[in-house]
Design a protein around this nucleic acid. Structure first.
Length: 499
RNA sequence: GAGCCCGUAGCUCAGCCGGUAGAGCAACUGACUUUUAAUCAGUAGGUCUCGGGUUCGAAUCCCGACGGGCUCACCA
């Protein structure tokens, strides 16, 4: 932390708390002890004594621990919050031992304490522990944000996420739901005999997607390495090796591109590969995975995002890209050759901020541009968009009925690409030709064209079984399922410029 | 990378047609002691993000920098 921020707390508020810390030590209290034998979480007590009537005592002695969030009546009442919820603490001089009374005077809102005492419900109906003994578990030196409005400053919420999590229940709920989503995906995949694997983050050749990588350097090997932009090529190598017929990885990818409410430089994807099936199997699997995640966090397939009602009930429609573009524009790209398609797409791009396609752009780039301009953001309800152009799909098999197309689909929800899948290209000769085409595009100025990965082609020469592959963007899925407007809300520590 | 908006006490915010800064919460002192954002009285707390400029005088107007948000571009 920069020095000026360290000094932020070095004011009178902080020195008052340092004095209290010294006073605690003078009492023989360790303000940062090693452990506390807790018997119950707040929510457990709430459940166990749900029927306890107001004014009743239980005689049950418990030990609870948590953070002081409120002090009322000069310390008579404390609100203690733990990860499960809240429990009230009653500190009366008749019940509290002398050491506890001395500690009580030195406590602040925000301090972590342990309490031992008997459970009762107050006449006003609040479940309460009558403190007999108090333990300091961590003395705090800085005050918490204001109790009513909490921490609202979005920059502080992201920079000091710990404060955001203490203060804002919605932030806790969102990140807990993120964990539920990931757990739901695993709970679908593991019983289907998908093997969870980990593949390298450091790549000598950044492949598997079209994106700008981060570059780093390995000192001992004295080579540049790239943070991976996708795990795809390594996962398929595992299929070649026969490690399993079904593999998946849920992990980070890194792309050195702009930040936005929907883009973080590091993001999490699920990628999976299944032998002996094609992309149609991936459509069903995508539906099953995403609906399982929705059920896990929302308990329903009818959800709301940003005020839009979304119905995730399967099966989702399957529409081809060319058909959707024709519906939106009246132009049938399937009947156009590359130059005509380019002209048509550039006409659509006129008066938009998109720059026109150059002569090197192929037919597929033209169709893709038209789709992006006129169709993409209108795909609010779930839809599998099929018929992706082959020349923008260098890792996918050609469509068995139309060589201009690939057996690839992307699933769109709320105008976002949520899933991307193909019948994986397994022919090493075709793959080598696709890499060569990418290299030509790169030479022509396409910075994101994929580099030639000779070892990957060699792997294919040893035989990759026919397979389907599927990728799902976890961050965006969590955004949808938690109604979060920014990707930063679903990432605990989003990338920010250091202050 | 471009455009628009924002930055005032620990936190949430007023003040912004120029006259040198205020509230609530948090803190401190005391009162009260079965409260629920407890209440009451008092006290303290500020390089108004930073640096220039205009002006007799700048939180306020102008320029620049830094940080953030949104939109666009790249992209998932």
């Amino acid at each position: 932390m920069p020095e000026d921020q360290m000094n932020d707390g070095d004011d009178s508020l902080r020195s008052i708390r340092l004095n209290k810390l010294g006073a605690l030590e003078a009492l023989g209290v360790d303000p940062y002890p090693y452990e506390f034998a807790r018997s119950d979480e707040a929510a457990d007590l709430g459940r166990r004594h749900a029927a306890l009537p107001a004014g009743a005592e239980t005689g049950e002695r418990v030990r609870v621990a948590g953070r002081i969030r409120a002090i009322r009546n000069s310390g008579l009442f404390l609100d203690l919050h733990d990860a499960s919820g809240k429990i009230q603490i009653f500190c009366h001089r008749d019940g509290l031992d002398p050491q506890g009374l001395a500690i009580l005077k030195l406590l602040d809102i925000g301090d972590l304490i342990g309490v031992e005492g008997v459970v009762r419900r107050t006449p006003r109906g609040e479940l309460t522990v009558n403190a007999a003994r108090l333990a300091v578990l961590a003395k705090t030196l800085r005050p918490l944000p204001e109790k009513y409005h909490g921490l609202a400053d979005v920059e502080l919420r992201y920079r000091q996420r710990y404060l955001d999590l203490i203060m804002n229940p919605e932030s806790r709920a969102t990140l807990r739901r993120r964990s539920l989503v990931v757990a739901a995906l695993r709970s679908q995949l593991l019983p289907r005999c998908f093997l969870e694997v980990e593949t390298p983050m450091l790549h000598a050749i950044p492949g598997g997607a079209s994106a700008k990588p981060f570059i780093t350097h390995h000192n001992a090997l004295d080579i540049d390495l790239y943070l991976r932009i996708a795990p795809e090529l390594h996962l398929k190598r595992l299929l070649v090796g026969g490690l399993a017929d079904k593999v998946f990885e849920i992990n980070r990818c890194f792309r050195n591109e702009g930040l936005s409410p929907r883009h973080n430089p590091e993001f999490t994807s699920l990628e999976l590969y299944e032998a002996y099936v094609d992309y149609r199997a991936m459509m069903r699997l995508a539906e099953e995975l995403i609906t399982a995640a929705a059920q896990a966090v929302r308990g329903s397939l009818r959800i709301e995002y940003g005020g839009a009602a979304l119905d995730l009930s399967p099966p989702w429609p399957r529409r081809s890209m060319a058909e959707l573009v024709e519906e939106a524009t009246g132009i049938d790209f399937l009947k156009l050759d590359a130059p005509a398609a380019r002209d048509a797409a550039n006409a659509l791009a006129a008066n938009t901020s998109d720059r026109p396609l150059g002569d090197e752009a192929g037919w597929g780039h033209a169709l893709e541009l038209a789709f992006a301009l006129r169709v993409e953001d209108r795909l609010i309800q779930p839809v599998h968009v099929t018929g992706f152009p082959r020349d923008i799909s260098p890792l996918a098999k050609a469509d068995r009925n139309d060589p201009r197309l690939a057996e690839r689909f992307e699933t769109y929800i709320y105008g976002w690409e949520l899933a991307n899948a193909f019948s994986e290209l397994t022919d090493p000769r075709d793959q080598a030709a696709r890499f060569e085409a990418q290299m030509r595009a790169r030479a022509a100025g396409d910075e994101e064209a994929q580099p030639f990965d000779e070892d990957y082609v060699a792997a294919l020469e040893y035989g990759l079984p026919p397979c389907g592959g599927l990728g799902i963007g976890i961050d965006r899925l969590v955004m949808l399922l938690t109604d979060s407007p920014s990707i930063r809300d679903v990432i605990a520590f989003p990338t920010l410029r250091p202050r």
